[in-house]
Amino acid sequence: MTESENQKPEEVEIRRAPKVLPMALTGAAIGAAFAVVLFLLIPEANRSSANIFGLLLLALGSLGLGLGVAFSIIFDLTTSRRAKRALANKVTE
């Protein structure tokens, strides 16, 4: 008997998991874009300095990053419930 005949099939879980980093970076980019739009909507007379732009960028970019991570975790939890099970043989080369 060869090695491949001795191996028993194992049960594996097949599911699609979202990538956290791209979703986090997308959320940060959306937050940064929102900060730029919000900064441009402030009337010129009410803008105190350019520091407000940096603060808006930091705050809304971080908020977007956090929301992107939260969305990907929630999406991962909902898709893990629809995972399929299959039998697979281990292949060694």
Rank of each mutant, 00 (worst) to 15 (best):
84 K>Y: 05
44 E>G: 03
71 F>V: 05
57 L>N: 02
44 E>S: 09
6 N>E: 08
5 E>Y: 00
54 G>H: 15
41 L>D: 10
90 K>L: 13
26 T>V: 15
45 A>V: 05
13 E>W: 02
4 S>D: 15
70 A>Y: 14
91 V>F: 05
31 G>I: 05
74 I>A: 14
4 S>A: 13
25 L>M: 14
55 L>M: 13
42 I>C: 01
8 K>P: 00
77 L>Q: 12
39 F>E: 04
79 T>N: 12
27 G>L: 03
55 L>N: 14
5 E>H: 05
79 T>S: 10
91 V>D: 04
65 L>S: 02
18 P>Y: 04
87 L>D: 04
70 A>I: 13
76 D>I: 02
31 G>W: 00
7 Q>E: 10
75 F>N: 08
55 L>R: 10
8 K>D: 11
25 L>D: 04
9 P>Y: 00
46 N>I: 03
64 G>M: 10
44 E>T: 12
7 Q>W: 00
12 V>G: 03
21 L>H: 02
13 E>G: 01
71 F>Y: 10
5 E>P: 00
65 L>N: 01
69 V>Y: 11
38 L>I: 11
2 T>I: 05
18 P>K: 07
64 G>N: 09
63 L>I: 15
54 G>S: 15
11 E>D: 02
36 V>F: 04
68 G>D: 06
76 D>N: 07
66 G>P: 03
43 P>D: 12
60 L>G: 15
42 I>G: 00
29 A>M: 10
18 P>C: 08
51 N>T: 15
93 E>Y: 15
71 F>N: 03
56 L>Y: 15
26 T>G: 15
62 S>Q: 03
63 L>P: 07
28 A>F: 06
34 F>A: 08
77 L>F: 12
28 A>D: 04
76 D>Q: 06
43 P>A: 05
84 K>Q: 10
31 G>F: 02
54 G>I: 15
34 F>H: 01
56 L>P: 12
50 A>I: 11
68 G>N: 10
77 L>E: 13
1 M>A: 11
56 L>H: 15
31 G>H: 03
46 N>D: 11
88 A>Q: 05
18 P>R: 07
24 A>Y: 02
63 L>C: 13
6 N>K: 13
72 S>A: 11
63 L>A: 12
40 L>T: 06
62 S>L: 15
67 L>K: 04
83 A>D: 01
13 E>T: 08
37 V>G: 01
78 T>M: 14
69 V>R: 08
49 S>G: 11
65 L>Q: 02
17 A>C: 07
18 P>E: 08
26 T>L: 15
28 A>V: 06
69 V>T: 13
74 I>K: 09
5 E>A: 13
71 F>C: 02
35 A>E: 00
50 A>K: 08
36 V>C: 09
8 K>Q: 12
43 P>R: 04
32 A>H: 01
15 R>H: 01
15 R>D: 00
34 F>I: 07
53 F>L: 14
23 M>Q: 07
29 A>N: 01
80 S>H: 10
48 S>H: 12
52 I>K: 02
61 G>T: 11
59 A>F: 14
9 P>E: 00
22 P>L: 06
